[in-house]
């Protein structure tokens, strides 16, 4: 494969654009300039570090090392889900919900992709395992965060409606049904949009990356279709698991709405 290697100067030029954007934000008092600079620096450090980790990982093909990296990715993703919620559950439940939904969805779909679809030897070859897990985990993290935030925020605002539905003789599940469905839609919307506009409005990042790295476009397209379908499956599964656990936790055994279990 032939590709044009980027020099530090190339990256510095791109960085100047972000700095210019931050400067504009300061000038217009948009209050996102500082945050933009911090996350840009954070992204650079994180990506450089993962580059080094991947370099080591690719040269060793060690399952234990792969599991360690995957665990770190899971912990960070779970924390990100938490950070994006306005009303979090108290105690361990908050991290439990995000970690278990991300683990079951992203890890199982990655496993299916590696063993059944890719069929590489060994199946845990980091060159495939890490990018697949990374893309699935990253996307599912956003989807689960959106859904959980929508659920807890709407339940908080509409607590009186939910209670009056309970009083009218509905079960907790019936009383929560409309909100749960809206939360599922909120979480699934980004991937539905991505599927609807893939190749027409936006050229997905992975495909673009492969083409830039010299892959034939049709090969890149096949991988992109695969990854989009896997992301959709993982998002759906993650959201369903997260909302199932969260919905159960919002009510007690007597089907009372327990808002004391989430933070104000």
């Amino acid at each position: 494969m032939n590709y044009i290697s980027l020099t530090p100067l190339d990256l510095a030029i791109a960085a100047c654009l972000v700095i210019a954007l931050a400067a504009t934000s300061f000038y217009l008092k948009l209050t996102i300039g500082k945050q933009l600079l911090i996350v840009a620096i954070r992204a650079t450090i994180q990506l450089l570090l993962i580059g080094l980790v991947l370099k080591t990982l690719f040269s060793s093909s060690n399952l234990w090392l792969l599991m360690f990296v995957a665990s770190v990715m899971l912990i960070v993703a779970s924390r990100e889900v938490l950070a994006r919620q306005k009303h979090k559950f108290h105690g361990w439940w908050a991290i439990n919900i995000s970690a278990s939904s991300l683990f079951v969805s992203s890890f199982s779909i990655t496993l299916i992709a590696l063993v059944v679809i890719i069929g590489n030897q060994p199946w845990y070859s980091p060159q495939y395992a890490i990018p697949f897990l990374g893309m699935l985990l990253g996307n599912t993290m956003s989807a689960v965060a959106l859904s959980l935030d929508r659920l807890s925020d709407t339940v908080w605002r509409e607590r009186e409606v939910i209670e009056q539905r309970l009083l009218s003789g509905e079960t907790a599940s019936q009383a929560l049904n409309t909100i749960r469905n809206a939360s599922i839609r909120a979480g699934m919307l980004p991937i539905i949009n991505a599927l609807a506009t893939a190749g027409v409005v936006n050229l997905p990042g992975m495909m673009t990356g492969q083409i830039l790295a010299g892959s034939p476009p049709l090969e890149a397209v096949k991988y992109q279709i695969l990854i989009l379908f896997l992301i959709a499956a993982s998002n759906g599964l993650g959201i369903l698991i997260a909302l199932f656990i969260a919905s159960r936790r919002l009510f007690d055994q007597r089907q009372r709405l327990r808002l004391d279990r989430i933070k104000t």
Binding site: E163, L166, L167, S168, G169, T171, Q255
Partner: peptide
């Protein structure tokens, strides 16, 4: 069952 209780003992808010 909670829904049955709410139907039998009706609360008007």
């Amino acid at each position: 069952q909670p829904p049955q209780w709410h139907k039998e003992v009706g609360l008007l808010c």
